[in-house]
Design a protein around this nucleic acid. Structure first.
Length: 412
DNA sequence: TATCCGTGGTT
DNA sequence: TAACCAAGGAT
């Protein structure tokens, strides 16, 4: 292809795609106007997340946090709760951190500046380009997975889109395609085409507005492009979960401030060694003494509570991007009656258990005096533990897997 | 550069 | 079922 032919193909692509978008674009909540805050929130939510999933979250989030100021001033737990179920929870914390930065450094106004927007927590190359182009109509590229797929096919590019360097190259190409004065619409058009027509598995070339000059299709490679190296499968983790019930309430804890499911609440659970895999086989008995013992030991060391596993409740699975949790859930009671004898009978660790119980009763008494509800106490592991009932779940953010487990346990 | 971060829909 | 993957970013 000559240089002139390439330029013609590019002009054709930009013109036809833009016209197609303006006729075919979906009516989405964040397209009501170009308010930078609305664009910002939508772009963060849309990271690695489907449009249909985002829509209800976006509506609820904007209703509860309608402005940068409202978001900046909200309690973090309310923000996390509103994000519950959407995943990648760091997005929520970063978004709020960004809102606070906008309040403090830019007087509550999102600046029309690529450098400033790029400096906000959770805003990377794609999102900064999306905000600058959609909210301010500035000619920056917004290259996501859709755009890499569409341009890989149209220009028959065979670089591995899993490599960061490839995205940089496609950004350089994408800038040159932006029509004068139409950056926002054009960038959205690229993504809209990828979402609706130029889909990963079976691209709809027959209805594609630019199929006539699509080099990938002409070469017969529309289904092999884009080239993308396979991701590693998630590693298995076998875990035992405790539903400890006392006076109609269930013991939960808050995860650490960083890492997986940071600051979310959960049922206590312990990691089993890889050798436990056999115990999760379909024909293996559901209740294994070994698991119950692990649960007793680890939970006691973590929370300071002595629990007694009773019955197998259910199995559950949860797949993260990089970890596959296989969970076996046990119902358990608190072992308060005859506690010292129980400690002795199990042998070893008696001192730890005795101290733990003492610490637990003390902190519970303290917190019930200072707070009228919800005794909260620190475990030996530094995590915060508390007893909740069904209604308390409305306040605390839980990962979906525990919502499922507790929902079934409580018969929701 | 590779790995860590969720969840749900499709195929 | 299992694999794939979706409007990515941080470290």
């Amino acid at each position: 292809m000559t240089q002139t032919e390439l330029e013609d193909a590019k002009t054709y692509f930009s013109t036809e795609l833009l016209a197609w978008y303006r006729l075919q674009k979906r009516d989405l909540p964040w397209r009501q106007n170009q308010d930078p805050y609305r664009v910002w929130v939508s772009e963060i939510m849309l990271q690695q997340t489907r449009v249909d999933t985002v829509i209800p979250y976006y509506q609820a989030f904007m209703a509860q946090f309608p402005s940068v100021q409202a978001l900046a001033e909200a309690p973090e737990e309310e923000v996390l709760k509103r994000w519950e179920g959407l995943g990648y929870y760091s997005r929520a914390r970063n978004l709020q951190a960004g809102a606070k930065m906008v309040m403090e450094q830019y007087g509550g106004v999102i600046p029309d500046s690529h450098e400033a927007v790029s400096g906000l927590r959770g805003v990377g190359p794609y999102t900064s380009g999306a905000i600058m182009s959609i909210a301010f109509n500035r000619p920056y590229p917004a290259v996501d997975g859709n755009v890499m797929r569409v341009l890989s096919r149209y220009f028959c590019l065979e670089d591995d889109i899993a490599k960061p360097a490839t995205r940089v190259g496609i950004e350089k190409l994408a800038v040159t395609l932006i029509p004068e004065g139409a950056a926002g619409d054009f960038n959205q058009a690229l993504m809209e085409l990828g979402a609706l027509v130029c889909t990963p598995k079976s691209p709809g070339c027959l209805t594609c507005p630019v199929m006539e000059h699509c080099a990938g299709r002409i070469a017969g490679k529309e289904t092999v492009l884009p080239i993308k190296t396979k991701a590693k499968p998630p590693r298995d983790e076998y875990r035992v979960v405790a539903i400890v019930e006392q006076d109609g309430k269930v013991l939960v804890r808050q995860r650490p401030r960083t890492g997986l499911l940071a600051q979310m609440w959960e049922l206590p659970h312990v990691l089993l060694p890889d050798t436990a895999k056999a115990m999760f086989a379909a024909d293996a008995p559901k209740k294994q003494p070994y698991m119950a013992e692990a649960l007793v030991r680890e939970t006691e060391e973590a929370s300071g509570l002595f629990i007694r596993p009773q019955e197998w409740v259910m199995d559950a699975e949860h797949v993260f991007s990089h970890i596959h949790w296989r969970l076996r859930v046990f119902g358990a009671d608190m072992g308060l009656i005859g506690f010292p004898g129980s400690v002795d009978s199990r042998g070893g660790g008696g001192d730890i258990a005795a101290e733990s119980l003492s610490a637990y009763t003390t902190s519970t008494a303290t917190s019930t005096m200072t707070e009228s509800v919800e005794p909260t106490f620190a475990g030996q592991d530094g995590m915060t533990y508390r007893w909740i009932d069904k209604a308390d779940m409305e306040k605390l953010p839980f990962p979906n897997v525990f919502i499922r487990i507790l929902g079934q346990y409580w018969g929701v």
